[in-house]
Nucleic acid binder design. Sequence first.
DNA 1: GTTGAAAATATACAGAC
DNA 2: GTCTGTATATTTTCAAC
Lengths: 155, 155
Amino acid sequence: MIDEISLKILNILQEKARIPNVEVARQVGMAPSAVLERIRKLEKQGIIDGYEVRLNPERFARGFVAFIFVKAGETPGEIPVGEMLARIPEVQEVHFVAGEDAYLVKIRVADAGELGNIIREKIAQVDGVLSTRTATVLTTFKETARIPIGEARET
Amino acid sequence: MIDEISLKILNILQEKARIPNVEVARQVGMAPSAVLERIRKLEKQGIIDGYEVRLNPERFARGFVAFIFVKAGETPGEIPVGEMLARIPEVQEVHFVAGEDAYLVKIRVADAGELGNIIREKIAQVDGVLSTRTATVLTTFKETARIPIGEARET
DNA sequence: GTTGAAAATATACAGAC
DNA sequence: GTCTGTATATTTTCAAC
């Protein structure tokens, strides 16, 4: 479904998404129009989901990362706790994890103080939340949304 | 350090990073050249870190997410466990978290089987790794690297 | 920051494979 | 169906203000 050339194009875009089309064409050795057509098709097929700018969190007072396990006892018929948590702007990720009826929440804030405020004022207030357990991050070694492609694992 | 106009530009780019410059200029009501100059400056200042294409993980057999707590007893003088974990391609995030001498690892794989393989063959093999505890994700409610800007929180 | 013109790039399209 | 090559439209770049 995805051939070698498209994989190469995707790899180039993963490296540097704002690269001009002609440059991509040069790197894969094809005419720009052909590359453009492929990219448009990858977008329409939903293989390319979109393009994002990556901002430096430190520069926006968002350098402090924490993961919070949120235990919830859902009440049927209401908005799921996960959706309520997702609406908090500082929250970047909300996953429901197996095994303990809990959500795992990734959050980015300025410092420990702000973290405490949000847990108390926003997370604990969500209907159905029973308890939270927080793990604050001291050092980040890797943080990317990139997925390795090229080993012919396409579906 | 960042004024209203640059914030607006960043918000537009966060919405849709591959938008043409002239379109950004239209939206902020300035000349394209001025917008370009601002963007270049934001890039040089490291406020804009880069641009990324967002690929659909499902289409690359990477729809299964898990978080793994990796307990480690570091041996001084060697490569930190966190760095070794970061080198595993399927691993998207590695954080050292406070309180339990443990790393929190986010990983994307095809399925539970592949997860088991990687834990056994790659993670458990890293020098200094003592034990792992895995939480597999059943549902993801939110997953973004976007940080809310605009509330004048800039540093 | 703006304008305006030159250069580069993106897009659409016709024809070859 | 995908590629190349060409034309046309749009955007980027850069100098002058």
